[in-house]
């Protein structure tokens, strides 16, 4: 048996594509050929590694066609999205080129002046508006600055007032809180003193009673 034949048999054995008789014959061959056996074990181990993974990807996009046979050609062209996209780009480019050529041959002018963009047939249009003078611009800027200053001052004053109001409100709240706490403390102290007074009074009574009992016992032996 040639080496090539051994390899082919090994593949059949490895993937279980042998009859029982062929399998037994090959196993006898394996017992007699240690090198072949080792190679088979190595390839079995390689298969084992490959068996732990799959080639599946999550990015499969569903593919289906309309069941309307009449729209066959339309569906076919839609299916070939890449070609469809290329055709659209090509058509857009052709339209743009045709438009540019038409503009070039018809004398249509498109450009920009200090006053803005223009589109004209024939020569470039003369400016119809001179715009505002430098003095006007300066006056306008001064007016804007003045307005901004007033607005900022008003804003600052408003913010300051709001802060004062918030501070005053916070102080009032704090004062009220401490006053309430003081009242509660005084009340607790008064209650404590009353309780102490009552306790002392009862202790005196108990002491008097005990002393009375002792005197009575001593005087009546």
């Amino acid at each position: 048996m040639t080496e090539q034949e051994k390899h082919n048999r090994m593949m059949d054995y490895l993937y279980d594509e042998m009859s029982d008789t062929e399998k037994r014959e090959f196993e006898e061959l394996l017992e007699a050929d240690a090198k072949l056996k080792k190679e088979l074990e190595e390839l079995q181990a390689t298969r084992k590694v490959m068996g732990t993974v799959s080639l599946d990807s999550d990015e499969l996009k569903p593919f289906s066609l309309s069941t309307d046979r009449n729209s066959e050609s339309e569906n076919s062209s839609k299916g070939d999205t890449k070609l469809y996209r290329l055709m659209k780009v090509g058509m857009a480019a052709a339209i743009l080129l045709a438009g540019m050529m038409a503009l070039a041959f018809s004398g249509v002018q498109f450009g920009k002046t200090s006053d803005g963009f223009y589109l004209a047939i024939g020569n470039q249009p003369e400016p119809v508006q001179q715009g505002i003078s430098e003095e006007d611009v300066m006056n306008l800027l001064a007016q804007i600055q003045q307005d901004n200053t007033l607005v900022m001052a008003a804003l600052a004053e408003q913010t300051r007032q709001q802060q004062n109001e918030q501070l005053e409100e916070a102080l009032n709240l704090l004062t009220a809180y401490y006053d309430q706490r003081r009242q509660q403390d005084l009340l607790l102290i008064a209650e404590g003193l009353t309780q102490l007074e009552e306790d002392t009074y009862y202790r005196f009574l108990q002491t008097d009673e005990t002393l009375g009992d002792i005197i009575y016992a001593l005087s009546n032996p």
Binding site: Q4, H7, N8, M10, M11, L43, A45, T46, M50, T52
Partner: peptide, 27 residues
Amino acid sequence: KSRMYYGLRSLRKILTEQNIQPEYLNY
């Protein structure tokens, strides 16, 4: 079968180079 055999051997060689055999390629 011949392509399969040589393909598997090449894979075996690469996986061995990647030091994968101790855990996964044991017999």
